[in-house]
Design a protein around this nucleic acid. Sequence first.
DNA 1: TATTGTTATACTCTATAACTATA
DNA 2: TATAGTTATAGAGTATAACAATA
Lengths: 160, 160
Amino acid sequence: MAAQEQYAELARQLSAVSAVKRDLARVLPVDCPPGSAAVLTVLDKHGEMRMSRLAELLAIDMSVTSRHVAHVEGRGWIDRDPDPGDRRSRILRLTPAGKRRLDELAERYTQALAHCLSGWSDDELGLLNTLLARLHTDFGVCRGSTPRFKDLAEPPPLPA
Amino acid sequence: MAAQEQYAELARQLSAVSAVKRDLARVLPVDCPPGSAAVLTVLDKHGEMRMSRLAELLAIDMSVTSRHVAHVEGRGWIDRDPDPGDRRSRILRLTPAGKRRLDELAERYTQALAHCLSGWSDDELGLLNTLLARLHTDFGVCRGSTPRFKDLAEPPPLPA
DNA sequence: TATTGTTATACTCTATAACTATA
DNA sequence: TATAGTTATAGAGTATAACAATA
């Protein structure tokens, strides 16, 4: 189990990713905070869906999702049509204006990434994407599974 | 430039990393939020230093760093000794209690990661760590360099 | 005058809990 | 009664700006 140190290092690296994300967030226009951008991105990639599924894909609580959605709807970037099959739900769908907004965001992100990561090859970027996708998947599976993180949150106090 | 799509995908993946980080943060004890853990981690890895350097390593504003530092000092996890060479500064140093606390955090992180990433080989973890370190470095360089992100923040409005 | 830190204020994101409407 | 979603409240993280002390 030489992986012990790798785990500790991964924890540090994940912490450091925050800085990169903050840098990237700075390219967003003021009326489109990261939470809004995330909503648009998911709706574009996965197509129309209900609140509950969006919250699941974003891996955030539905109450939070609800506010993000209200914001982007207020900007006219998505529609919330009643679900004919279940009147408690509404179907979220990207509007043409939302799609245009998203394309513009992607343009900004790409520009910033291309500037900072000019030394990366296409294969290297692909590899990082693959590993991050797997990381996300494995944590997602883990999130739903038996040993809840909560169980680890407060172990018995140390003898000290 | 087939990397265009890779950049867009990386932006999505980085966004998704937040979910993993939130999961991981849940294993922290309530008296040690992620910001405090980050301070302890950096001081352990790089040794004693001043506020300004800590803020630089964390890539967050010094005002924010100051609050995190005040918190961990309040818990007795670090010392803030006056800098004999410059009385405006203070030297931050991990205390034995802080080191113990950090070891315990690492234990929790490792346990959570080992549980979720049991399918990863040591080499795969190492590869992800290497790529993330490089990502962080390249963004760090970029952060200090000429074309400030601010310049990209508000381009001329679209014809719309 | 310039620099190191600290504090005050404000904004974004998140979770928990209480609540409404529908199944 | 259970579920989909909304809203109220609270907590953590961050940045900007104003301020203190020292160089």
